[in-house]
Amino acid sequence: VVDQIRLWQLENERMRTMAGFLFKDFDSAEEYLSLSEYAEEIGVLVWKNDRKRMFFASKFEQLRDYLKSRKKAE
């Protein structure tokens, strides 16, 4: 049993997975920064790369609403 537990732990260390959404193809750096900062603020930001202007978030709905309200305000 100990061996099996050890194997299971190895399996978990080998690969961490999380379902969510990749945000990419932003029109501007400003749009990227504003949305990624908002994602961080509400606690859904999992990974980001400022240079690539991409981030991964665990949830989608609030970010979509944020984008919509932002577009309206423009």
Binding site: T17, A19, G20, D25
Partner: peptide, 17 residues
């Protein structure tokens, strides 16, 4: 235009990747 693509993020060591 920004896009949100549904998927699974994988974090692993470079050898596994």
């Amino acid at each position: 235009m920004v896009r949100a693509i549904r998927g699974v993020l994988i974090e692993c060591e470079p050898a596994i990747k």
